[in-house]
Structures are given as C-alpha cells and as structure tokens.
Nucleic acid binder design. Structure first.
Lengths: 191, 191
DNA sequence: GGACACATGTAATCGGTTACATGATTAC
DNA sequence: GTAATCATGTAACCGATTACATGTGTCC
C-alpha cells in the first residue's frame, strides 16, 4: 500500500494535516497498513492536491505554524474506492524474529531467551496500542466505526494467539538452542 | 532484513547459487523474511564475495549456463551471527486486506465477500506451501532441522488461527458491508 | 513453434527513509 | 536551559524492483 493511498484512506475518515497523518500511520489505527514518514507524506499530499483529489485550507493559529488541513474531494473518494476495488496484494509478514529463531542452535540459549522476551514484549506493546484505539470511546471517531472495530479485533485476536503460542512453545525453542549449540560448534569446527 | 543478510543466512544452510537463493526467498523456507529479486541478489552476492564473506566456484554444465555456486566462509558465518545478535527489528505486518475491510461500508457486500474469499484462499495457499517444507522429509535439509521446523510450525499455527477466525467472523464483516452501504451512500451524497 | 525452466547479470527507475532547515510554545 | 511537541517542507541517499539482454535445453 503506497503512501498516496494511505493518505487518501486516512482523509476519507476525516480532515487532517500531514503531521497527524504520520501519527495515524504509525501509532493509531492504520498502523497495519503503513509506516510513512514526513518525507513521503508531504510530497504525496502535494501531488494529491495537484490531482484535485484533496483540497487544503490553512488554519492560522497564533504562536504555532500554520496548519494545512486537507479534505478529500468527491474525486478523491472515487479514486480511493477504485484503488480498494483493485486486486488486493497479499498480506506481508516479515519476521526478523523468526530468522533469529531459525538460527537458534547457532546463537545459543541466552540470545534466544532474550529474543523471545523482546518479541513478546513487542507484541504486548502493539496489543496495548490497538486496545487503546478500541477503548477510546469518547474521542470523535475511529474506535466506534464497526468496520474499524472488526479490523482491530482481528488484529487483537492474532496478537493474543501469538502470545499464547509463544508462551506454550518457547521452552522447546530454548531447548533447541541449548542442545544444538554443541552441534553447531562441532559442525562449524568440522568444516 | 536486507538482502545481504538473507543471502548470508541461506548460504549458512548450504551452498547454492543466486538463482536458487531467489527461489528460497519467495517459495521455500525463508519466505518469511524476504522476497528478493535477481536485481538485488546478484549484486549482494558480488559484494559479499568482495568482502570475503563468501567464496564462489564455477560449475560448468554442458548445454546450460555456468552455475556459480557460493559458499559461506568462516568470516561470513561470524558476520551472520553478529547480524543476528543485533537488536531485532519488530515484525512487519502489512495487510492490504484489512484496509479493504476498514472501508467495508463504502465498498459493499459483494466486494467484501470476494475480498474475504481471496484472502482466505491466499492464506490456504501459503499454508500449503509451508506444509510442503515440513513434509519434504526425503530432501537433504531444511524440513528436518528442528529450529526451522519450530519456525514453520509457528507460521502454520498463525495461519490456521487466522483462517478459523475469519471463518467465524466473516459474516459479521459482510453484515457491516451490507448495512453500512446505505449510510455510506447517504453520507457521501450529503456532503 | 512457443512457452517455460535454467542461469547470470545490468541499467533505469521508483518509492521511500534519513537528515537537514526552521521556528514558536510548553513542560520539566 | 533543554527537551519535547507542534508543524511544514526539501535534498541526498538507498535499497530494491522492473525491465532488459543473452542463451540453451526440454516439454507440449
């Protein structure tokens, strides 16, 4: 999902600024889809504006820089729908953790233990963040939207499942790391 | 995980060629970690060779092009271990499907149904592929390695969980798509 | 005769990140 | 005083993809 579409999608949920789009993309809802930086968001917004898929209004606020608030246009909404109706690219799941896991015998039990710990902590943190969106309640939008809620619940479910699985199977990986250590040393020395 | 490390990792499992590395990275084991193309693999291998982290031997085979078979060196193995001991980057999970799901009310039930169908088919296909690695058995390596097996089982578990969850909750999303459709039209028309 | 698998490699391009530039306000 | 938050934007760079170039053998 390119930044352009992500911007359009976020703007379809309500008017915002480039600054806030970045926060959505890496903290809030939408953290599933992107992880965009200013360097990609601002040019994307400029381009969308040139294409008349969004409009801008400048809100001067005393003391602070001018906020450029973007709104999606009808054409923008149509373009978003068009993009979402295209064949969906497969989900991407890239796990540096699993690469470490695969080399458990080479890395030894201490490293594996700390890797598992860090990995689980990461998942817990992500889960907490997702839960916050749902529980937000009072805030004006996202958590209340049923479709967003469905997606968030799907994400939460996946995370909880992973944590359960790790809890139950981490010992096995740690044993592999401990047992294989000698083998790895031997085979490395043998070569 | 950059292509360089992926190449090193694959070579740590056994000698291969650039051509086969690509296959590993998008079909076999390792499909979790990368999705590299020739355009990145060949330059990476050349660089690794220059750094003396791998060596090459050319195997002439009559009729076919020369195979350049790469082997990891001791320095390469050390570099891989060093890379794997660095702080692990968080897992990346990017789901174009969930973006579609979030806009279910805007897209309507037919689209959502087909999106769910395609998504589940994709997961099933991925699962089949992973199962093949494990069940390979007779082939000389990966499926038998306990750490690889652990990682594969983790992946299989996640996929099965997702499928179960989708099976049980797809109806709810389809309803949201159906019910919300009118709202979306109204709100779109109202603006 | 055409498509596909094997096999290596380069050049153009692209999408995106990082770092930089600027500057006021608020909280510690 | 110093760090963080708000806020926008550009330029340099980078990693990777896409498309291209080349060539044989095999299967349908």
């Amino acid at each position: 999902m390119n930044v352009r579409t992500i911007c359009l999608a976020i703007l379809a949920m309500g008017d915002t600024t480039g600054y806030e789009i970045r926060k959505h993309s890496l903290e809030g809802d939408f953290s599933y889809f992107a992880d965009a930086s200013y360097g990609s968001i601002y040019p994307a917004l400029a381009r969308l504006q040139a294409e008349e898929l969004v409009t801008v209004r400048e809100e001067a606020q005393p003391g602070k820089p001018v906020r450029k608030v973007y709104s999606i246009t009808e054409a923008g909404r149509a373009e978003l729908i068009r993009a979402l109706n295209e064949p969906i690219a497969p989900d991407v799941f890239r796990s540096p953790f699993l690469l470490v896991a695969v080399f458990a015998p080479l890395l030894g039990p201490q490293r594996i233990r700390s890797a598992i710990e860090a990995h689980m902590a990461q998942i817990r943190a992500d889960r907490k963040q997702l839960e916050a969106i749902c529980a937000d309640g009072d805030s004006h939008a996202q958590g209340d939207d049923p479709a967003t809620r469905w997606a968030v619940e799907y994400g939460l479910h996946c995370m909880s499942m992973k944590l359960d699985y790790l809890e139950q199977n981490r010992a096995r990986l740690e044993e592999i790391a401990a047992g294989g250590g000698e083998n790895a040393s031997r085979s490395a020395a043998a070569e």
